[in-house]
Design a protein around this nucleic acid. Structure first.
Lengths: 362, 362
DNA sequence: TTGAAAGCGCTAACAT
DNA sequence: ATGTTAGCGCTTTCAA
């Protein structure tokens, strides 16, 4: 490995001069010195050791990213955008970890990051307790949390970037209502996180505004196991299966997210219920997968790239002002596809819906 | 930040004694010394700085993982298993990067890893050229490559772990043949990587063995763009769309992977073709998503966890023997689901197939 | 404009 | 059994 010493020797200058050119202070020396140093660097193919640098500066160009599960395509999509932004804008790489929504795993990851000298981290967590990263923040970490709201009165050491979950769910619900649905449900998994509560609130708000409060139910499909998020689809499937024998079955269902919606449709199908002929389903996320599901999934698109960029931007340039820092992103829009139609019993005066597939046979 | 010095002072010993207990050499000292040091560590909440350690040892508990795209659920699944194995067995974290199958990005990632002191990396690459990581290997990196074979005659500096792609495709093709299919196709994306060639070879081998050589076609759905692997499904969809107007259309299609199969089914559907009634589709991978697609996807399950564990094991304990090191994993089996049935024109003497969904209406 | 030198926190000879 | 010390490769005062 070639070191700064080798370069200094080669260019016949001192290490501090080399260090200066490395750190963009080439103007402090005679042009020919600069040229000599640069030539030496090129000749030797020298690349400064980031570790040694960091031992001095306490900074390493690494961004921690904590996700519930890498196997969940939604987090994969976010990670992809976070990586791109971090890399292109700041030259940072990603140190990633899955937590499976486990408090201990999450805390351990923070400790490791600290040990590795990582000072910036983006956390996608559904844990209710924000305490462990408040403490990491206190130890000098710049933290941005995804999918939760800032807590007023709490210190602003943690930044927040989140989709407007309330509005996303409200939009989805409203779409169902606009299609004529009256018996509504929101399909979710066990456990009430901030974001899930917000979505449920948005669902109820839309229902209430349409006078449908009594007909709006929340369907809990069960808990996520330790295997991670690939089971979200399974939870949806379970919910779908249950609905087969449900006489008071809803005609329009808002799913917590696209993955759950896809599983839900599978479960419904298995009981013989047709989507959207018997039951309409709408998702939230806008995963690329929902464009090739059968039927294609109508969904509320979240501005993934914009949020990822905002998170990176915020974690790189910590909020120094007073008060809390919170960025809430409105849904990018409703993507109408094939999983929503008018309810079976409703009159068909409502706007006809273009269906790519699975045309109702009525 | 508390340092080893603080601990030494607190325990009233020297730093080397503390260092010794840190490195599992507690037996070299009197029990009460050990106890004092441990007490001090606990009291101060001391955690050794991995950076400083690494500057000395040249080792950092970080594993580089290079994937074509984080947004591809298959790589997400692999990453998840790699992470678990690296963490549980060795306490390593993941430094991850997407390459979008770009030579320059891949090379840059290797350079960065080297700069960060990362000495072990698992590469999932479809690039034909292995040279850039041969060179990294020469600089002391322990490298394991996924989804390609060792090149005989080349130095064994790079380990190889791969599914038996030939066998996986052969198995898939054979299943179609067993169901009575005679007009076969293999759906793929543009660009011939090692693993794709192997799959195509397996496809042809099965076809030939059944005397179907002339009826076995390869369908190229187009190239992956820079956006990454979420477009694989789109490529499949394009292929499906094309098949609508194809009079010599195959009745059974083996897809390069599950994602492409899911897109293919969507494209087929859009042209009015029914799966499996008109066309049977079989995937390769065994993604959790294929269990909730419509129809559910028959696929060849790859032993993802086993391969991930093998990769981690191999990258952590580099192959020192002579010759090449290559681990080829047989497919874990065929998962029969709903996307394969007998061909429309074939007689139905072949084994009936259980269909969860989309029952042929004949 | 350039260089010398003191560390950053840790490990591992090499003393004692 | 324990301590002393010389670095790992770099940055950054401070001096020349």
């Amino acid at each position: 490995m070639t070191t700064i010493q080798d370069v200094a020797r080669q260019a016949d200058v001192s290490v501090s001069t080399v260090s200066n050119v490395l750190n963009g202070r080439g103007n402090r020396m005679r042009p020919d010195t600069l040229a000599r140093v640069e030539a030496a660097i090129g000749l030797l193919g020298f690349r400064p050791n980031k570790l040694a640098r960091q031992l001095k500066t306490g900074q390493t160009p690494l961004l921690g990213l904590l996700v519930p599960s890498l196997a969940n395509p939604m987090y994969g999509s976010i990670a992809r955008e976070v990586e791109a932004a971090a890399q292109e804008r700041f030259g940072y790489r990603l140190l990633i970890g899955s937590t499976y929504r486990d408090q201990a795993k999450e805390a351990a990851f923070f400790e490791d990051l600290l040990d590795h000298g990582v000072r910036r981290v983006i956390v996608i967590s559904s844990l209710a307790d924000e305490q462990h990263f408040e403490s990491a923040a206190a130890r000098g970490m710049s933290i941005v949390s995804y999918d939760r709201r800032a807590v007023a009165g709490r210190p602003a050491s943690v930044g927040h970037v989140t989709p407007d979950n309330f509005e996303a769910a409200r939009l989805a619900t409203q779409h169902l209502i606009d299609q004529g649905h009256r018996r509504l449900a929101f399909a979710t998994v066990s456990g009430l996180t901030l974001s899930r509560s917000d979505k449920i609130a948005g669902f109820h708000a839309a229902a209430e505004a349409a006078g449908l409060h009594k007909d709006a139910r929340v369907l809990d499909g069960g808990a996520l196991n330790e295997y991670g998020d690939s089971v979200i689809a399974e939870v949806g499937r379970t919910t779908g299966l249950r609905l087969g024998s449900d006489t008071e079955r809803p005609t329009g269902i808002v799913a917590l997210n696209d993955l759950l919606a896809i599983g839900l449709m599978a479960g419904l199908r298995e009981t013989g219920l047709r989507v959207p002929h018997d039951v309409s389903v709408i998702g939230i996320d806008g995963l690329f997968l929902s464009a090739v599901s059968n039927p294609t999934l109508t969904t509320v698109q979240l501005p993934i790239r914009e949020m990822a960029h905002a998170m990176v931007e915020q974690v790189m340039t910590p909020w120094t002002g007073s008060g809390t820092c919170e960025l809430v992103f409105a849904p990018a829009g409703l993507i109408e596809r094939g999983s929503v139609a008018s309810p079976p019993t409703a009159d068909r005066k409502h706007q006809a819906h273009k269906l790519h597939t699975a045309k109702p046979s009525v």
